[in-house]
Design a protein around this nucleic acid. Structure first.
Lengths: 343, 343
DNA sequence: TTTAGCACTCTACAACAAGGAGTGCTAAAT
DNA sequence: ATTTAGCACTCCTTGTTGTAGAGTGCTAAA
């Protein structure tokens, strides 16, 4: 950002951005002069605006409309101008209450978090759960559910539970299933899930094991149990985008919804965002989700007790209330980290 | 339905409905005469249409537009006129393949089912999972995840797995957790989840148990484990409603999305639909989800091995391709029942 | 009972005019 | 050297009018 601006230009730019965020209408010179009680005439403001336009910070939809901020302007605003609103005691309370009351497992907490983000920000809430495969193995257990059906339950030290129904060729008694469980628990103790998976594959090559019918079956089943892609994603408050006038035309909304139906995009997002600490802000075309749709994304990562990383965030129009959403996202991410690490 | 119609009127009504389903445009008298190679002049068709309008089966948006079917007409069409299209071998294959490959637990299968319904019908797919509380208890297990954290895992004989993280006041060793598990497994053997819940409450009143520190803790924890509302609902293919011209205006879409964000509505739907067997069809204002939005709903229930009931369905505009969607829903419901009962 | 003919209604679309908002430029004022 | 008032200009918005087309309803003939 090689933007060099006089204090007055900054002030005017800020006024325009905030006006536009509030109204979604192009803002004209007289509106700025009036609303901000600047001791300047519209004409002066116009000159400044003209400069800002040349610098690529403003555009006008047509000759005789006011001007609207460009992506570059939002970027500058967020980097240099913004006065973050403090998160209120009330909001804090609400976040804590809702995330806690979710009770249940990790998934339930994260889903409620996503809803909370949505309702506090009035945009869409997004949570991408941490990848299970990086978690540390805690426990595996097999239950017989019928002649050829075995339920494998896999627990990580985070408390994330995976279960999978496996069809077996032959009948296995519950006693044998317990033995298999003991064997595997021994085998995978202390490994991450992905390492555990490797260990299983190695073990399957072992000659001793190959001759032990029970053990080789155990490996077979558990291999299926660890082989999955578990990508939990919670997008909540989708209907809120209808509140935004810029999305009232179907076309852009469709883009957004399409994007969410492809999980891949969101996972890619996760991997991109999880390296950096703190609140990340993606504006317009910077946004990995749906570049064309004119949305911005504010995210922050959270960390579980096993040091795996997840992502929370808010998605709204580029014209979003950054100053209030950023603190909310920030606070929520920290809270979720704390909740998930709580003793 | 006290509709008495001549064969010719029926034929014309059917033609109009099918035309309108295909085009979403009001259909005029000459279009009917032409497209259906009826040996009738537009004028004659007009007379018939005029009658149909009087009977409340057609309306016209304005004087000089064609006519469109009313809800009553769709109802009559579905009840008496419709020629169901046979489900193709290809569709069958696709349904089977996708539902099977989902692997994993019940949830995964049902989610994939919902997606499959959506992509075959080109409308939205809906699956409401059977209520867990009616399932038969199979197994409970406790795992220590840290000083004061216990993970309770509850398995029903369907293979549905519930897990819940419980904070305990004092530390409990894994050994004790195993004992607690044994005790509770004994206690709840063969009961449904909801009965198991009652049993726990009864047991907590028992004096003998109250003096056994371990057992009373076990009850305390397991009470939390069975106390939840687990309503899994999968709505997939939401972006498809953008393809329907009648929803291009934001207002009606918003209604639909709002409805889906309130789970209550869908659960109410479940309870209403699950009593009846076979395919259920709800047209327009009959639809429990969002009466105002002009949507129709085609559902059928499925049954799990423990005789609990779930719901699959397709949601589209009232102007939906009933003749092809009905067989798809019918077949899929049967398949899912079979899959979930499979030995 | 069916059909041709015709007047009638209503929409959709385009062309046009008036009003308004906001700009850019120029020249005067500070 | 800035700031500001004045003013012409642009372009959107809204409303009006006119026309073409689609489709109906009615009447009278087949």
């Amino acid at each position: 950002m090689d933007v060099e601006l006089s204090p007055r230009s900054k002030q005017i730019l800020e006024a325009i951005i905030e006006d536009y965020i509030a109204t979604a209408e192009p803002v004209g010179s007289s509106a700025v002069a009036r609303r901000h009680a600047l001791t300047l005439s519209p004409a002066t403001v116009r000159n400044v605006m003209s400069n800002l336009e040349e610098m690529g910070l403003l555009t006008s939809p047509h000759t005789s409309a006011g001007r609207i901020p460009t992506e570059k302007a939002y970027r500058f605003y967020v980097d240099s101008l913004i006065a973050l609103r403090q998160i209120t005691r009330d909001e804090k309370k609400q976040i804590i209450r809702r995330c806690r009351q979710a009770g249940g497992g990790v998934s339930e907490i994260l889903k409620e978090t996503s809803k909370t983000l949505s309702s506090l920000s009035n945009y869409m809430g997004l949570v991408v759960a941490p990848s299970f495969v990086a978690d540390v193995f805690r426990h595996i257990e097999f239950l017989s559910l019928g002649p050829h059906r075995v339920l494998a339950i896999l627990v990580s030290s985070n408390g994330t539970v995976q279960n999978r129904l496996v069809e077996t060729e032959e009948d296995i008694t519950q006693d044998d299933l317990v033995k298999m469980g003991n064997y595997l628990n021994e085998l995978m103790q202390g490994l991450t899930i992905s390492l555990a998976r490797q260990r299983i594959l190695e073990e399957m090559k072992d000659e001793k094991v190959q001759f032990d019918r029970l053990m080789s079956q155990a490996l077979q089943i558990s291999k299926q149990a660890v082989d999955f892609e578990q990508d939990e994603i919670f997008v909540e408050g989708q209907s809120r985008i209808f509140d935004q006038p810029e999305f009232s035309t179907g076309r852009r909304m469709q883009d957004i919804f399409r994007a969410f139906e492809q999980k891949g995009i969101l996972l890619q997002l996760l991997s991109r965002c999880m390296t950096a600490e703190g609140v990340q802000i993606y504006i317009g075309s910077e946004t990995p989700v749906s570049q064309s749709a004119g949305v911005s994304l504010i995210t922050s990562r959270f960390i579980t007790s096993s040091n795996t990383v997840g992502l929370i965030g808010v998605i709204g129009p580029t014209r979003m209330g950054y100053s209030s959403v950023i603190p909310i996202v920030d606070y929520t991410a920290k809270l979720v980290s704390r909740l998930l690490n709580e003793v």
